[in-house]
Design a protein around this nucleic acid. Sequence first.
DNA 1: TCTCACTTGAGAGCTACTCTCAAAATATGA
DNA 2: TCATATTTTGAGAGTAGCTCTCAAGTGAGA
Lengths: 231, 231
Amino acid sequence: MPDNDPMAARSKTSASPAAPAAPAAEPSVPDLLIEGQPELGLRERKKLKTRIAIRRATYRLIKEQGYDATTIEQIAAAAEVSPSTVFRYFATKEDIVLSDEYDPVMVSVLMARPAGEPPLESLRFVIVQAIESFMETDYEELEQRTRLLVEVPALRARMLDSMTETTRLLAEPLAIRVGRAADDLEIRVFTAAFLSALLQTSLWWGERDCQDDLVELLNRTVDLFGSGFRL
Amino acid sequence: MPDNDPMAARSKTSASPAAPAAPAAEPSVPDLLIEGQPELGLRERKKLKTRIAIRRATYRLIKEQGYDATTIEQIAAAAEVSPSTVFRYFATKEDIVLSDEYDPVMVSVLMARPAGEPPLESLRFVIVQAIESFMETDYEELEQRTRLLVEVPALRARMLDSMTETTRLLAEPLAIRVGRAADDLEIRVFTAAFLSALLQTSLWWGERDCQDDLVELLNRTVDLFGSGFRL
DNA sequence: TCTCACTTGAGAGCTACTCTCAAAATATGA
DNA sequence: TCATATTTTGAGAGTAGCTCTCAAGTGAGA
């Protein structure tokens, strides 16, 4: 696992505090994120562009130097905004890498599932669909993100943490579907365990260099849940 | 949920950078941690004392001021050591609150389980035993820790993160017991899901003010696993 | 008692992150 | 088209967690 060489990193940054910033091409706003929106004003479009520019710059710099060696200052310089602006768009450095907008989509997909479907199968559908759509949209990024998750503890921690929120988000509609209270213990435990299992599956995939079929792995994991863990 | 008031915190710290430190009584080394040790030298005893003093000071200050408002400097002052020393004993501020030595104990308990016992039941035994022993030793701390876990996102994140290591630690002996490879996907997923479920159960307990019987809750959670999540 | 290894404190330094304030850009209404 | 209100941005100062180095202090063993 080729980790960041701290010595190299430090001497590099002290030599040139702002990164060697190739000013990056104007980011165009991908259709996916606009779709269905009622005419974005200039302000909104600019914001989206800035957001994307920051993310792109971050991924590029991390690829070149590693996560730890990449500072917010460098990211800001490369994205041609000020450091303050970076923090206005992303709460933490980890969020620049991890943030996505899939959660609400997953919730609406979940709610659209036929009544009476077992919760486990509903979640299977939701997650497989989410992953497949991610793979179609930007397979490259899925892989890089997964690799980073494997390599960088801080990112793993943040991911784990954000799953807490996802758990809450999914647990509520699930509870309703099976006629339980919104804060039901079993529902919550089930959801959290499920998400944790998915993350481990992704990590397993990443650790093996993304060679396997991720969707198949996920299905194996879901099957394991259904079997009552008879190993 | 009474969170830390940042305004109050800031004005307090800027008024008196070092905490109002009641110098704290000499900590005595609890038997539990010495048990079976072959005579601790003076040096080792001192180290243990320092470790305990830091933890005590931290818990006290957090109780008085909240987690975020408590700085390492204050902790160091209250424990009567230098800030550098605090970091020599604990890698992160979160670790001061969370670190324990239960992991290796759990592993050895797990390995002592009868061959042929279903993995789920082995883990049930391990975890119930760990919690019960924690409750006997220091119920107060268990409660305070759980409450902090509920209230402080940073602590939750760190806890989640440390579970990754616990997963690895438990997965290997488990794999051996059922005759699978050490890095088997199913074993790893199972272990991670299980631990995640336990944490959620603890949080649920904490959110309800530690009123319920934690061991009973844990057993419910394990039962849910065995049922194949038929909700 | 002397020496060696370990532990500690002091202090400088880095970076993520927060806050404030004034300037720039955009939206809005006449 | 211009003037005004609202957002967004950059600059800069500040906090705190964490790392590293180095010299001084302290327990262990001969």
